[in-house]
Write a protein that binds this DNA or RNA. Structure first.
Length: 541
RNA sequence: GGCCCUGUCGUCUAGUGGCGAGGACGCAUCUCUUUCAAGGAUGAAACACGAGUUCGAUUCUCGUCAGGGCCA
């Protein structure tokens, strides 16, 4: 038994393993548990880890903490991976990639844990504890009632080997508990300076469920050591775990990584952001039409500042500018208005082609248009979960048709329509509501909407008739935005108040109170549709 | 309850032993304009409180208060 352990200890110190990393290589990681959607907080922690690694030519590692088989699900892991990829946060080592230090899922690392747990047991640094849940709870309540910090009584700390053997034989449920030495543990937090904690405040902690299943703190310490993590960058909520982990690392003879505890992202009520605040999974932002570069930019600014008034950062410029000094130590409220502003900014910066590509799925989903090519050819990603699908430039050459009328339209037509709303979009999903009138035959609106200010019904009728007459005389070849503007503006001027002509025209074309300008819209719709809509409007009165 | 973290406009933040406390989002007003955006201009809006150190504290020290996190 002892010999075996010596053997495994030797393996642990295998020099070959250490050679694998470059001298001085900075290695960071995130270690999410796949027990739910990939959320904003994890995304930001990932981002800062990634930026820190990139800035220092280090490695960013993704480890999946799926030790809890009941709560961990493959689909959540996939959700995390998809989210990270969407944001452009790439890992050098992770599940199904890298593999320099064994598997990157905790569920596949039992062999590794076993060695260390056995080692701790052999060295009598951990012990079997057979106390029942009720017993522990009662003791806890007692301590609380006399105003003491709840911690383990130490009842099983000195059980004789015979007692342990007997209990094990009886299959009594147990946990493995760490003999916490009574002392003060302190560490330097890269953000907060020295943090010191008295170990008596937590006492003997449970570190493993059985010989191969470490609990969170132990697993984390073993993995971080095995994976040669140099910097642990994580949320502030882990500060209380840190002294425990340091203790465990010490008892295993591991070197101490550097620690940096990021402030939390808060909800409007200043508590940790959660679903309760309506915090959405990262991929939900994708669905709603946020651009990954916007979310990254926003998240980076939440708790970090570059020291200059600059607000817009691409991932590359973030890597360039990032420094730990710019990190904030207080929590920051998630302000979606600012996210919207940044998103709008990035939308405005897109080329018309790119923007059209990005918007198309939303028009298709709203059933305003449909792709015209073979069904099989179409990216098979119209399932709800996959929305929006990733399209490429192949769309440019494709044809589409208006769902309602079956009329064929080109990418170019869509591009023109969508571009009109480029500077009005805050998120891509808004596009269908804003441009729906391009794809509808009959517009729903009340006749009151046609009247500008205090115009009478008669005036409105006359204006529409006049418009019809003027527009009829324009040749289809002259049907351009510039020309329409030239002609109509002169006529509108004659009416006195331009709005008396332009407002009813715009409403007739769009059926909306707010929209892009009538000249652009009319030029895209074409002569026939324009006249048709004026006729429709006229009929309402 | 214990331990730990945090405290500058509503929000994200810059900043210094002496400043008119700066920027951004949001908000308001004006401008452009048929509307809505976008753009431009202007404005309202903050140093948690108390004591100490000091000629002088938003800044340094201590305390109070408030908020948060973790322990089940």
């Amino acid at each position: 038994m002892i010999k075996e352990n010596l053997q495994s200890l030797k393996e642990l110190e295998d020099p070959k393993k250490i050679e694998l990393i470059r001298p001085g290589e900075i290695r960071v990681r995130i270690a999410p548990a796949p027990t739910g959607f990939f959320h904003i907080g994890t995304a930001r922690t990932a981002l800062f880890n990634y930026l820190f690694a990139k800035k220092n030519q280090g490695s960013f590692i993704l480890r999946i903490e799926d030790t809890d088989p009941e709560r961990s699900k493959k689909e959540w892991e996939e959700n995390i991976i998809e989210g990270l990829k969407w944001l452009g946060i790439e890992w050098q080592e992770g599940p199904d990639c890298g593999g320099r230090y064994g598997p990157y899922r905790q569920s596949e690392r039992k062999e590794i844990y076993k060695k260390y747990i056995q080692k701790l047991l052999d060295e009598r640094k951990i012990y079997y504890c057979f106390c029942s849940r009720e017993e522990l709870q009662a003791h806890r309540n007692y301590l609380l009632s006399i105003g003491q910090p709840p911690r383990y009584s130490g009842k099983c700390r000195n059980l004789s080997p015979e007692e342990v053997r007997k209990n094990l034989k009886e299959k009594k449920p147990f946990v493995l508990r760490f003999k916490t030495p009574s002392k003060k543990v302190s560490f330097q937090d890269m953000l907060r300076g020295k943090i010191e904690v008295d170990t008596d405040t937590f006492g003997d902690m449970a570190v493993a469920k059985d010989l191969t299943t470490p609990l969170y703190n132990l697993a984390c310490v073993i993995d971080d050591f095995e994976m040669k993590i140099t910097h642990v960058i994580r949320g502030e909520d882990h500060i209380p775990n840190t002294p425990k982990q340091i203790l465990l690392a010490e008892s295993l003879g591991f070197p101490q990584p550097k620690y940096l505890h990021l402030p939390l992202i808060l909800g409007p009520d200043r508590t940790k952001l959660s679903k309760r605040h309506g915090a959405k999974p990262v991929l939900e932002y994708k669905k709603e039409g946020y651009l990954p570069e916007a979310l990254v930019n926003f998240l980076a600014l939440l708790g970090w500042n570059p020291g200059t008034p600059r607000e817009i950062f691409s991932m590359n410029s973030l890597i360039q500018e990032f420094s730990v000094e710019g990190l904030q130590s207080g929590g920051a409220i998630f302000n979606s208005k600012k996210l919207d502003w940044i998103n709008g900014f990035y939308i405005r910066a897109k080329s018309p082609e790119k923007l059209t590509e990005l918007c198309l799925p939303y028009l298709i989903k709203a059933e305003l248009i449909e792709p015209y090519f073979e069904k099989e050819q179409f990216p098979p990603a119209f399932e709800k979960e996959q929305f929006p699908p990733a399209y490429g430039a192949e769309l440019i050459s494709q044809k589409f048709r208006i769902k309602e009328s079956g009329e064929e339209i080109s990418f170019n037509y869509l591009k023109k329509a969508i571009s009109l709303y480029q500077e009005r979009l805050k998120k891509l999903s808004e596009i269908s509501e804003l441009t729906d009138f391009f794809f509808k035959e009959k517009l729903e609106y009340s006749k009151e909407l046609l009247k500008w200010k205090d115009m009478t019904e008669k005036e409105t009728k006359d204006i529409l008739d006049k418009l019809k007459k003027i527009l009829k005389n324009i040749k289809p070849s002259d049907w351009t935005k510039e020309n329409l503007e030239k002609v109509l503006l002169v006529e509108a001027e004659k009416v006195g108040d331009r709005g008396k002509m332009l407002w009813p025209l715009r409403v007739a074309l769009t059926g909306k109170e707010a929209s892009a300008g009538p000249f652009e819209i009319s030029s895209i719709l074409g002569k026939e549709k324009t006249l048709n809509r004026i006729k429709q409007a006229r009929k309402k009165l």
